[in-house]
Design a protein around this nucleic acid. Sequence first.
DNA 1: AATGAATGAGTCTTCATTCAT
DNA 2: GATGAATGAAGACTCATTCAT
Lengths: 220, 220, 220, 220
Amino acid sequence: MSTPAETSARRRRKEARPQELLDAALALFVEKGFAATRAEEVAAHAGVSKGTLYLYFPSKEDLLKAVIAHCLSSRIADGAARAAGFSGSTTDLMRDILAQWWVAIYDSQASAVFKLVMTEVRNFPDIADYYMREVVQPATELLGSIVKRGIDNGEFRHVDIDSAVHSLVLPLIMICIHKHSLGACPPACLGGTLPVDGHAFIRNHLDLLLDGLRASPAAR
Amino acid sequence: MSTPAETSARRRRKEARPQELLDAALALFVEKGFAATRAEEVAAHAGVSKGTLYLYFPSKEDLLKAVIAHCLSSRIADGAARAAGFSGSTTDLMRDILAQWWVAIYDSQASAVFKLVMTEVRNFPDIADYYMREVVQPATELLGSIVKRGIDNGEFRHVDIDSAVHSLVLPLIMICIHKHSLGACPPACLGGTLPVDGHAFIRNHLDLLLDGLRASPAAR
Amino acid sequence: MSTPAETSARRRRKEARPQELLDAALALFVEKGFAATRAEEVAAHAGVSKGTLYLYFPSKEDLLKAVIAHCLSSRIADGAARAAGFSGSTTDLMRDILAQWWVAIYDSQASAVFKLVMTEVRNFPDIADYYMREVVQPATELLGSIVKRGIDNGEFRHVDIDSAVHSLVLPLIMICIHKHSLGACPPACLGGTLPVDGHAFIRNHLDLLLDGLRASPAAR
Amino acid sequence: MSTPAETSARRRRKEARPQELLDAALALFVEKGFAATRAEEVAAHAGVSKGTLYLYFPSKEDLLKAVIAHCLSSRIADGAARAAGFSGSTTDLMRDILAQWWVAIYDSQASAVFKLVMTEVRNFPDIADYYMREVVQPATELLGSIVKRGIDNGEFRHVDIDSAVHSLVLPLIMICIHKHSLGACPPACLGGTLPVDGHAFIRNHLDLLLDGLRASPAAR
DNA sequence: AATGAATGAGTCTTCATTCAT
DNA sequence: GATGAATGAAGACTCATTCAT
């Protein structure tokens, strides 16, 4: 009963739509905030009309949740897999995992979700649950286990594991958030200050932190 | 209609109003976001009527700017003064300055402004300018100068100054933001995860970082 | 693309379409009201797609008019014919005509049109014209002429003809309307009240009314 | 804290508003149907702006329910009271009760509710419950008890009580509904037909029906 | 012929802001 | 000064209708 000729451009359009809308929504929600973004703007950004948006997402709020869920389909499992099969020093492992994560995140749209989550969790509590389960917990466990490996095999000092994980990770998250808030303001507003180069920073940051973690004062 | 006796309590009330409104506004803007907060809610939170809010602030947007400006009346000058007269080791100075800053910020409402600024800068660019000038630049300069002092006097390694400052400060800012986003969600949403104790963290964080900065491999 | 064999089933399908759509439309318009019924619902109810509906009816409003026109293709002519050739008592004639009319209407979909007309005339005045011409006038004339015959031949008292017709007919119409409003609500809503049995009622009603009309107090 | 001077015109306005809005809503809902009436029209009809309507009723649906509830604050108790203290013949009692009810209803706005209820019950089932409890049941009981009194004291024949009540009442309800549907169409649409005079009708109707009920074939 | 994706005019509803009291 | 009733612009969402396939 369904025309087989419908296979062409029309269908391809239809299948691409949700993604195009999610992309537009992410960009705008991160730029202006969820409440301050008009549904019609999202639609226009994706090149469709208001009505079409509602063909794919039942409400603006559902669109928000879809945006977040879509971006968070965990990249962390990859890291865990890498870690499991890693045979070098723990310092190298940590550097590898974080650098890897960074290149996957920082330059992509994914860096935006952190701001979005920070901004909107309190209005939409199911986001909190989802984010904790899909991101915070796996990430904390993965990095914590690496720190622990370092301590156990004598590479790292006996530091508090959770604090060390935070010292390692929070600046990276913060830089992602920054990129989409102050960092995205027109330079004119910023009084000609440092644009914060994420790639340069992460190298220095890891050097500093892994040095702080190192156990033996000898080899330097 | 105006009593001459309106001197005491009533006047005190009147003079306290702007502050009460600012407090209410900060709390609500941080909780729900600027766009999602109704002017009437702010008024109700401060115990006055909608109309009264507009007696003190010409518009909701002006209220936002006043909230931010008020919270940012720089505490950083204090730090600079302390630093200028400090005679101990640079490690101690850094620890002193950051710990001091932390106690002034973390437990107070001031911790909320960071989230508010992150969230709203892109909609209100004059906030960016103000924040850069009043907060980012002075803080960066102060901390940068301390790191430089450490490098110059041989206490610290030859690290990149800006990166070191970021590694030191960004986790602290991030924890402030977290406190008002995920950290403020009802525990039920969080799946029983770590509530992040800011005071414990800062100690561990400074230990780790200052250790990473230390120049001589000897004394430990 | 068109098979020569599309003769039988498919064609029958195609020819039945308008009727299926009219049936679906009647049911839904009566249930929810014209304005509150979505064109797509009507189509779905008839087992076709939105677009197909518009192949047969140029607009939702035209569909409404078609529904009403279709249901009103006067059954009253039948009654007039019966009446013309009737040779028994006027009481029996009246009972015959109304009972006949009742069995044709009450259990069929036709009972629904009355509600539909009542509900929508004021929004679509051409319906009024049509309904008056096709239903009200013929029916009034037919029944009025029967009452007159009864009066003229001494069977009935000298009552006001129009009033008598109304006393006879309005309860029947009202019961049809009721069947599609309160009478169609889930029993839970109705607090366990009488479901109003139309067939029992019409018998009692005619007994009562024809008794009231009867002229001679004698024969009972 | 509330200005006592607010007692004047302003307050009187505020207290009258709900009633003005209910009146406007009744008129429009009955004329065009609930779904086809725009909230703004109701407001305009009551001489206020869209926003003001929502100051008094939380939604259009609540407005509908308020309209119906307000019109149905039962006038039937009055009838029951009259009936209780009545000492004349049952025929006179019935005539008295129905005529009384008729003058209270037919010329007033109250006649409109019947159409509104008929039209909207199926979309808003709580209306059904309310209407059955507040109107149908009390009225049926009152009139049923009068018919029973007539049968018991030998004035009326042994008719089916419920059917008799329906024969008596349904034409009256139907005329109310008619008044607000076909009866309200511009005469041009009606092809110059009888405008149905309610007051003339009820007299004839009661004569006819009470005659049909009368027991003794003697006195006439 | 039939479909259903796309459109955008039209509605309900909210909320910043004003102003008479 | 303080209030809160009133406003109306703005935004979420629906649905009749069109048209490419």
